[in-house]
Amino acid sequence: MKKWMKIIAVLTILGVLGAVALYVFVYNKPHPSYAKLEADFVVSSSVLYSQFKINSKTASEKYNAKMLQIEGILSKIEEVDNTSIACFIMEEGVFGDQGIRISMMPEYATALSTEMIGKQIKIKGLCAGYNDTDVILEHGSLALIY
C-alpha cells in the first residue's frame, strides 16, 4: 500500500472513531447541574404568580424553560411518589389552593423541612409553565432560608 493511501486510511478510521465518540458523548450528555445554574430571573413568589395570572402568554414567553430564583413564604410541603413539592400558596381558586409548586430534586428534598413552613425562603427551579391554576417549577433546590 502506498504511503498516501495509508495516511488516508488512518485519517478515515480516526474520523469515524471521532464521530462515534462525539455521538456517544452528545447522546449521553448528562442533565445540567440545575442547582449550580445561575438564575435567569430573581423574583418574588407573589410577583411571579400575578404575572402569570394576569397575562400567562407574556409570562410564559418570559419565564418558561428559564431558571428562576423565587423568594417567598413557604406554605406547605407535599410528598408525592417520593418527590417533595414545595408550595407557595397565593389564593383559593376553583382547583383548591393555587400558587407556585416546585418539585424538589432528591438531594434538596431532605433539606426541606416542615420547620420552614411559614418562613421566608429562596428556592431555585426550572420554570415549566402555568397550568391555569399554578406556576410549576422542576428541579428545585433550596437557595436560602432566613
Binding site: N28, N64, N131, E138
Partner: peptide, 16 residues
C-alpha cells in the same frame, strides 16, 4: 386533565 409538556422528565438530557 391539564398537562405541562415541559414537566416531562427524561433520563437523557438530549431526548428531553
Amino acid at each position: 386533565f391539564k398537562v405541562l409538556m415541559q414537566s416531562f422528565q427524561f433520563e437523557k438530557a438530549l431526548m428531553q
